[in-house]
Design a protein around this nucleic acid. Structure first.
Lengths: 206, 206
DNA sequence: CTTCATAACATAGCATTGCTATGTATTGTG
DNA sequence: CACAATACATAGCAATGCTATGTTATGAAG
């Protein structure tokens, strides 16, 4: 029997080109439609189906890209000797990124779509988990604190804030509530109240 | 001079019929399109433009309806002698409602649209504010606690949780994080830790 | 009661959407 | 070289929201 051979290979550059262009159009608030996406790129509408299987696949890839960029950004946040400060700084970076690219952020959490790689969401938490582990090592948080749970809780607070501010009814100064909530949360993990407040306020630069 | 007269009045029943039907279709996961919405109702597509000015207006009305129903639901939550428990119960009711009608909830917080009545969002907070005031009266929270701020913070936590669970990557048991976060938050308002935890756990029936 | 301007409503059609069917070009393997 | 499998281009389809146009109903003015 003939097992067939790969004859013509997809060009990965086209894939990244389309993703890049879609991200650009999102930023510019231009509606990302099949035809407007490929217009001017030289590639035909079929390319979207060859590379993504359709518009749904494009959005899935965009979501993946968003999580990937977010993880990179969080990895690049400069750390200090104060892990609690760093934890707040990571939350602030998360918020800044989401507010700078609100449309991409919305796509990332749009309903009806699942991630290509479900682990990508967890990946986002790794930076937070590392900071929490450092806080435990430094004696700021109790040893019984579950790092993943606390990271998830921190994420929940950040996501709630950014959702209500970026596309919701809360004004931008409401971001300051993050300090209050996170401080309360970190104190409940064993941090000394006064010091915790200072650390969170120091890291929370939105 | 001729001042003109209103000749044919809009039928309010048609308006509520369309909103009701749209909500029904959302619940049934049927795509709500202009034609599918009016199909079988006897009204023509133009009705949507007469009553709402277009599909955008329909979504705006849906959002308003969602907030209205939410306020009614929160008003109906039975209260107890424990205001902190009630506060958690209100949060839990908020979550239950959102998870029971995830599509309507998503519409409520969709981007690009503003509310017809911006006060409707604040209205949702009134039940929370009342519970917080009762907690202050009962000596559970410090007098300096700003009720609206704390209500907003509670809302932020609830919204973050429900967003990540209903349409996001977190599994449903993650709702339990609400207990941890809210307990920490309420303790920071002056409540006694052990008692606070009991109250929140008692009220948090999701 | 008659008139008639105005609003409510129905119909048809437009541009655009995502998608698919069909045909053509390309390229590595046997 | 020959062929099969894939990438790519074109054209067209059903469905979308919306608008232009025509028709009907209604209540106030005379």
């Amino acid at each position: 029997m003939y097992c067939g051979g790969v004859v013509r290979t997809k060009d990965p550059a086209v894939r990244t080109l389309l993703i890049e262009r879609a991200a650009q159009m999102l930023r510019a608030r231009d509606p990302v439609t099949l035809r407007s996406l490929v217009a001017g790129t030289g590639v035909s509408t079929m390319a979207v189906y060859t590379y993504f299987g359709g518009m749904d696949g494009l959005w899935r890839a965009m979501r993946q890209e968003g999580f990937s960029r977010l993880a990179t950004l969080l990895d690049g946040v400069p750390l200090s000797a104060d892990p609690v400060r760093d934890l707040a700084a990571l939350g602030a970076a998360y918020l800044s990124n989401a507010l700078a690219n609100p449309d991409l952020y919305r796509v990332m959490f749009d309903a009806g779509f699942e991630l290509e790689d479900p682990a990508a969401a967890d990946e986002t938490l790794h930076s937070l988990v590392r900071a929490i582990d450092r806080a435990k090592d430094a004696g700021r948080f109790r040893a019984e604190v579950d790092a993943v749970s606390l990271a998830t809780q921190t994420w929940t607070v950040g996501h709630g804030l950014v959702s209500l501010v970026a596309t919701g009814p809360l004004p931008r100064p409401a971001l300051g509530h993050g300090v209050t909530i996170l401080t309360a949360l970190f104190i409940s993990c064993g941090d000394e109240p006064g010091r915790c407040r200072d650390s969170v306020e120091d890291g929370w630069q939105v």
